[in-house]
Simulated scan of single mutants.
Amino acid sequence: MNNWSDRLKASSKILRRQAVRIPLPDVEAERSFHQNMMRIAAAGERKSTLLDDPDVPLTEAYEDELHEMRQSFEHRLQQVGGEDYYDVATAYLDGERDDWIGALAAYYLECYYRLQERYTVDEQIFFLAILRYPKSFTVNLSFLTGDFSADAVSYESSKHVEADLDEHEQEQLHADCQYSQHEAAKYIREHIDCIREAVPDPDTTPFEQRQYGGFVHITGRQGSTFKEVLEYLSPDPDRFNDEPSTPGLVPEGPEAKRAKETFLIDVEVVI
């Protein structure tokens, strides 16, 4: 990934503040979308269970979530660009091709690369907004710097505390961290339904009730403190007036901008 990292320094600006828009031409496409979102919801429930387990370190809970996301992006990269997706993405960034396949390969590969740093780079915020419209959905991934508003749940990791503590202090720190992780697990369980309700089952939900929906998931770390937001996000019904025939990149949209203003402070876009 080193070559890709060097290339991004000169080329990644073309991907800033953009989202992927995917057509939903039929019920089969909606089923696939629904199933993918249910996998995300299941991963969130699994994360809450791991956070609530005193014998599981916080890092293991995050590695489980990251593994799920890696697999998802690898699958999308291969769907879009085939086994040569790296060459497809770099050709797009080099201006050697100008099509939606190259654009999506570059977008997904950039996100995949950034995910490798998600829990090792301090003070970087991961922002995911997924929005459902009548004939399409959008996926907006951003990597930001800044801080969280009071809406976020906060929890601590004893493994990330850099301090020289005696045995009693270590025990107290561990207990405090466990309590904060318990509260975070409770928060995730209480909010995970926003994913399910954003993308209901097309086989059991009338079209009129599933045309619009959305959620935002934001996570980040500052030292030993982890923060997270998982909330509903309402799509703008006037955002699109066409039916896309192929996937493509679109501006991030007013919904993502509002979410950043609501849940984050002093935001700057990394990508």
Rank of each mutant, 00 (worst) to 15 (best):
Y108M: 03
V161N: 07
V250T: 15
P254H: 02
L104N: 00
T262C: 00
Q181E: 06
A61P: 02
S11N: 04
I188H: 03
E255T: 15
D176S: 15
I271P: 00
V250M: 11
E156N: 14
H217I: 13
A185D: 07
S72A: 13
I125V: 03
P23V: 14
E117R: 06
S32K: 03
A256S: 10
L264W: 11
F148L: 12
G223P: 01
G44S: 12
H182K: 13
S142Y: 12
D242S: 15
R258K: 02
S245A: 13
D122I: 15
Q79L: 11
E252L: 08
Y133I: 13
G213C: 11
Q209Y: 02
A29C: 14
M38V: 01
I265H: 04
I40C: 09
L165N: 07
I101P: 00
S72T: 12
L131F: 07
L173P: 07
H75C: 14
H217Y: 11
N140T: 08
K186P: 00
L141Y: 08
E208A: 12
V161Q: 03
K257N: 09
E110G: 06
Q116A: 11
D84A: 15
A163P: 02
L93K: 02
I192A: 13
D52Q: 11
Y108A: 04
G81D: 05
I125C: 01
A105S: 00
L51W: 09
Y112P: 00
E190S: 11
S12E: 09
E156K: 10
L141R: 06
D64N: 06
T145C: 08
G253T: 10
R7H: 02
K135R: 06
K227C: 08
D203A: 14
L104D: 01
D242I: 15
H174C: 06
D94G: 10
L51R: 01
D52A: 15
L104R: 00
D98Q: 11
K9I: 12
E110I: 06
F263N: 03
I192K: 12
D122T: 09
P237R: 01
Q172L: 12
K13H: 05
L51G: 09
E183K: 14
T49F: 13
F33S: 02
R46A: 12
T246V: 15
Y155M: 14
A105F: 04
A129E: 08
P251S: 11
V139T: 10
R17Q: 14
V199C: 07
Y212Q: 09
V270A: 04
R16P: 06
P200I: 11
E28K: 02
I22S: 03
A198H: 10
Q79S: 12
E60D: 12
E183S: 15
K260L: 07
Q181W: 02
D64H: 09
L8W: 02
V216S: 05
V216E: 01
R7V: 06
L230K: 04
P200W: 07
D236K: 00
P254S: 07
D203R: 05
D52H: 07
R7G: 02
S154R: 09
L50E: 04
A106S: 11
